[in-house]
Design a protein around this nucleic acid. Structure first.
Lengths: 214, 214
DNA sequence: CGCTCATGAATGAATGGTCATTCACTGCCC
DNA sequence: GGGCAGTGAATGACCATTCATTCATGAGCG
């Protein structure tokens, strides 16, 4: 009961903070504005969080738990590395779509982490990126992807491409392309430079078939 | 004479600000620290800049002038769209390499522009991105690149990939791959999913030859 | 020349406004 | 009736910006 009420209020503050940080940016956001938006007193914030930085960190951790498990589920739904990457792209963009405020915070504010919170090591984010690297590695083992591509570079390249696109969406009011098109273009461009044998058609790689012939 | 001294001091402050912003981040940077680093008094800053925001904007504009003309020169040096993109990638990463402080500011601080300077429309950055879009369009006209790829998406994808990689370099102390390898991997991955006919080898596209046969 | 004086660049201490954070107090619930 | 969540006014630290003052320069003049 008390636990419930506490958790509910904790989440209410997180939600309010998400909106306020997205609206103003971290430094311009006033704790009192978060409090007002959450319908609590200024001081109440400090019953749930150590300080302003802690709100941002908690907010991020809370969200990342959801995002990571959601994404793991998505890419576990298929065996094919090609499809895994396609799903990753689409899910990532959908996620941004559904949660613009959060996306904006991740993109704009959390990039600062090395600055204003030296200590916060952002492990969840690294995990998220490594989902891609693991898929690439798997694809290489299966003989589907070029072996000379460095998975740690590839993960940054794909994530960066998706992320830059999201930034554009988040910061601009109108969008030119629908999400499926965008995800498809990004993953196809990424993939059919990544896939080993240029003679093959995209469809051939959807199934998890063995390598046939050179 | 006086003009020289002024310009020299203006640039000295810009330089100091670049280092301080990179070190602390915009909000944590104190104007007095910039003044100290530039070897001038606090008040002097305000003889050259309107306010703290203005320092950041000027700094960026000043740098972008150089970057843009440098990049234009690079990609004008070859006719082939393929090589243009390869050069773009390498030049971009080299630029980051040579100017880490600036790179950090662009990546971390200027992303905030939509927040703390609604008015600043960052046109130089748009121009920079459009360099890529123009190359892609040209490649499509030449029949080298897939026509269904949207140049405005492609420009964000390539820039995003390069940018994410740079972020990693800027924020981490050690680097795993040399710059040529990274640039090559990014542009090759990007390109050989972009190039129309999968049967061709990379070398075939370096020259500006006509399309031969289906 | 050498003196005076005007100019405006440069200075840095003082100001003022803005919040994050605290804490003495309130009132609810067991 | 006391323990505890919640409150919000008060505190104090912080820093961008200002501005009264200093100082270097060089022009004008006898």
């Amino acid at each position: 009961m008390k636990q419930n009420k506490n958790k509910e209020k904790y989440l209410r503050i997180i939600g309010a903070a998400t909106r306020v940080f997205a609206r103003r940016g971290f430094y311009q956001a006033k704790v009192s504005e978060i409090a007002r938006e959450a319908g609590v007193a200024d001081g109440t914030i400090y019953l749930y969080f150590e300080n302003k930085d802690d709100i941002l960190i908690s907010l991020f951790e809370e969200q990342m738990k959801i995002v990571l498990s959601n994404m793991r589920e998505q890419i576990a739904a298929t065996e094919s590395p090609v499809e895994k990457l396609e799903r990753f792209s689409l899910s990532h963009l959908k996620l941004i779509e559904q949660n613009k405020d959060m996306a904006e915070i991740i993109q704009v504010e959390l990039r600062q982490s090395s600055k204003f919170m030296k200590s916060y090591k952002n492990e969840h984010f690294a995990e998220y990126l490594d989902l891609i690297a693991d898929i690439v590695r798997k694809g290489q083992q299966d003989g589907l992807f070029k072996k000379d591509v460095v998975p740690d570079l590839a993960k940054r390249a794909l994530f960066g491409a998706l992320d830059e696109l999201s930034r554009y969406w988040v910061l601009s009011t109108r969008r030119k392309y629908d999400i499926e098109t965008a995800a498809k273009q990004i993953s196809e461009t990424f993939l059919y430079g990544l896939v080993d044998n240029p003679g093959r058609t995209p469809m051939e790689f959807k199934g998890k078939r063995e390598r046939r012939l050179r």
